[in-house]
Amino acid sequence: MRTLGGTIDGAIRPERPLASGTNGERRPAPLTFLVLLWLSLVVAFGVLVTLIVTIIIDGQGQFTGRLLSEYPASSPDRAGARPAILGSAWVIATTAIMTIPLGIAAAVHLEEFADKRNWFNRMIELNVQNLAAVPSIVYGLLALAFLSLLGVRDKNIVIGGALALSLLILPVIIIATREALRAVPTEIREGSLALGATQWQTTWRQTLPSAVPGIATGSILALSRALGEAAPLLVLGALVFVSFDPSGILSGYTTLPIQIFNWTGRPQEGFHQLAAATSVLLLGVLVLMNGLAIYIRNRFQKRW
């Protein structure tokens, strides 16, 4: 007769109520850790903001059309960064054309075709990882040696700089592409192969298209790193004073970081302001490129 009420009597009573009053996140150890995390964030962010604000204040007098349209000059009032902007564009474009196809091809080979148990392939893989961590100036020296070997006299040419920067970012692109390829589920590849597609067709029609967003993001980030480099180009003897537009891959050039480097070394205050303004310009371009990378990642990212 009483069983109807039985289920209520037998209701589960949790041993520890949810409202236990002891918040696990509020104990001393986690709290200290949290505070430390916040502190490091504040320090890092503070330094960055100070830096940006300083250069903006320094350079504010020089944000004029002249910066974009004029050639460097002996007086800060007449000088502009036009050849540096064009030079950067030439070098980065050449680098992109040289590196991206090569990097993707290398990554596809390593990821899709190479036998991963083969010692030679494993060694290559390890080396690619290590190369990504080599200081950029070393690549400058490498390119220098290579050009000398070829007997190139004037090493300050667009293709020379692009060569150095390509060597620098090739490992980065290879790694990014491999990550993107690895993120494509094996099931997709197996599905394609099980229908009688070849390995080549599977890569070309399934794996690569799915990996494009990841590859694009990685490549843009790598190129933006190359854009900010000065050291390897200086080793190649990049001109610091160029008063002509680069006209081809064999033409002489300067780039934004080198121009900045040059102007900072001048005694006149006006040049320092020009350098600051150019830095802001470079920074803006980098932010735009990173923004584009993030956009591509979010917009085209596949969710499996």
Binding site: I188, E190, G191, L195, G196, A197, Q201, R205
Partner: peptide, 29 residues
């Protein structure tokens, strides 16, 4: 593999349209 097809444990359609999923096999082979 074309003569002996396979269906997997987890459904694994290609990230394409329904039509292209079916047409893929005949096209590549």
């Amino acid at each position: 593999r074309r003569r002996i097809g396979m269906v997997f444990q987890k459904p694994n359609p290609f990230p394409k349209s329904i039509y292209d999923n079916i047409a893929y096999g005949p096209r590549v082979t």
